[in-house]
Amino acid sequence: MTTSFFQNFPLRTGRTHEICLPNAQSFAFALGGYLGGAVLWICEDWLAGHINPIGFSTYMDPQNLLRVKTKDQTDSLAVAEEALRSGVVNLVVIELRQPLSFTAGRRLQLAAQTGESTGLCIIPEGQGNNAAETRWRCAPVFDQQDSTLQRWEITKNKSGTLAAWDVRWDAQTRRIIVVSKASQ
């Protein structure tokens, strides 16, 4: 039995999900554009790089995005929990550097459940948390014609099976298009 992409995307609300590098950001922006409404982007302030509003304006409206700079991961998690619990923002994106404890991951889940909003943790590879609803891996794929081709892969799924898809971003219609079935 094969799972359809749109059974899994957009992500289930009221849960926290995880996404691995390197193309986590385009996944997060595509999801933010899909869900609409306010998006909170939490990152630590010592990081040199930052998201570029001109770049992601093709994915979602930068007017809807608020960026929060925190001094460490504890603050990031506190802000994320507060925002998820309030239910005002549809998507909370948290850039994490260190692995979460199970308690922290579970607290995020409970907060998301209370506020009925979606949480998305951007994690380094191999630092997943058991509490996450789904875990995705998102990597760009080289293609001579199409410069938005990516491979999206579910590597953990609490309520479904694992699968992988080749997708591309259609800038005209502003949506994700599944290109073809990738081999397992």
Binding site: L66, D75, S86
Partner: peptide, 22 residues
């Protein structure tokens, strides 16, 4: 209003100037 209240609550913890927009 609720979003403003959320910004205030976050601001009391990490400083109001750290909640930014583009």
């Amino acid at each position: 209003d609720r979003l403003d209240d959320l910004i205030t609550r976050i601001g009391t913890r990490i400083g109001l100037e750290n909640v930014q927009r583009f």
